[in-house]
């Protein structure tokens, strides 16, 4: 079942120029209940009607009843969220999404662009737990935007960094890694559409699973706002059939 609950914020910390890390205490035992790729819809408990719509965030980590989120402040909704203090409550609707990442591949590459990296960390943990190999590739425009680097390096051994301007890690795009890797089976990706598009159009033999972001009003399948084009030219809901799709399912 999908739950709508008010939960206390444990931390809400600025970890980069524009990026915040938020930890929530759901008070429930969530172990095994959140599938990698699932997300939540969040807003403050302020009764104001503006902003109206909740924001969709990937569930980046789960430990017991604690949920970790990462978000960039991009507009009114995320700005207001960034002002919430520890101890105050937020409203979350979760878990959402039925299309989730597969956990059964042995050799995995996780490619995250910017804040999209937050959509892959729970996956990386679950894959590692199952004894599968995980290579993490994290790309951003510039060094100051690599706000999840420490979080990633605490969780994973094999982490590659790319920046477009070369200010940290290798100069280039996260997708550049593909020419260097051998023996991998599957790519799991989350990030801006141009990144996913270039991955989509590359001619390589990997299986690809992509998690999408889209303007979303409800998160549970009824507003039909978040759709993405399917291979048969109809529309699929990112929130319901997704947010993770295999490359063969969609057109981007």
């Amino acid at each position: 079942m999908i739950k709508d609950v008010e939960v206390p914020v444990l931390t809400n910390t600025k970890i980069g120029t524009n990026t915040f890390k938020m930890e929530l205490d759901t008070g429930a035992d969530l172990s095994g209940k959140i599938k990698p790729g699932q997300f939540l819809m969040i807003r403050t408990i302020n009764p104001s009607d503006d902003p109206l719509i909740r924001r969709a965030f990937a569930i980046a980590d789960v430990e017991g009843g604690k949920i970790t989120l990462f978000y960039d402040v991009v507009g009114k909704g995320t700005k207001i969220l960034s002002l919430v203090k520890p101890g105050e409550k937020v409203k979350i609707l979760f878990p959402l999404g039925n299309g989730t990442f597969p956990l059964n591949y042995k050799e995995n590459v996780l490619i995250g662009g910017g804040i999209g990296m937050a959509g892959l960390t729970l996956l990386g943990k679950e894959l590692t737990k199952r004894g599968n190999k995980v290579t993490v590739v994290y790309g951003a425009k510039t060094k100051s935007m690599l706000s999840m680097e420490r979080f990633l390096k605490d969780l994973f051994k094999d982490v590659y960094i790319f920046t477009e301007d070369g200010s940290a890690g290798k100069k280039g795009y996260a997708t550049d890694i593909l020419s260097e890797l051998t023996g991998k089976e599957v790519i799991h990706a989350c990030g801006p559409i141009p990144m996913l598009k270039s991955l989509y159009n590359m001619g390589h033999g990997f299986k690809i699973f992509m998690s999408f972001e889209s303007p979303m009003a409800c998160g549970w399948g009824v507003c039909l706002g978040c759709v993405i084009k399917s291979k048969d030219n109809s529309f699929l809901r990112v929130c319901k059939e997704g947010p993770v799709f295999e490359k063969e399912q969609v057109i981007i």
């Binding site: 719509i53 909704g77 009003a217 039909l224 993405i228 030219n233």
Partner: peptide, 20 residues
């Protein structure tokens, strides 16, 4: 009916616009 191309929704002050 397959519906309209995205972008289909956008938030506005105390409301939203849709074109599904």
């Amino acid at each position: 009916r397959r519906g309209n191309e995205p972008v289909r929704i956008v938030e506005t002050p105390c409301g939203m616009l849709n074109s599904i």
